[in-house]
Amino acid sequence: MEQLSFTLKAPRPAGGSRWQAIAGVVASGNLEVLVERMEDQNTCRIDIATAAHGFGAVWEAVIADFVARGTGGLRVSINDGGARPDMVALRLAQGLRMIEETET
């Protein structure tokens, strides 16, 4: 397993008030994304455990796009079963959408 960790400045805080959300499952070509509201409003931290070694640069690019959407205050923890970048982006977006939902 390879462990990666990124802490980035976020342009604005994530919306909504939920404090936690989870999307996806750990399987071949898939990943789980746990999103928790536990960072400073202007930072986003992303921890990754991945079965596919040597893709740090790809992760960095996907994550930069994600954080640019406004993910301040979030800690994102990822268990990756070797997902492609488009799948990673999809799960990140799902996790963000879920934590930004208003409680009903």
Binding site: M1, I22, V26, E32, L34, A51, S77, N79
Partner: peptide, 19 residues
């Protein structure tokens, strides 16, 4: 999942855990 109570054994097999 936020408790991260994961398998203590999958690491030996270099397999990813789920939270």
């Amino acid at each position: 999942p936020e408790q991260r109570e994961t398998s203590p054994h999958l690491g030996l097999f270099d397999l990813p855990r789920q939270f």
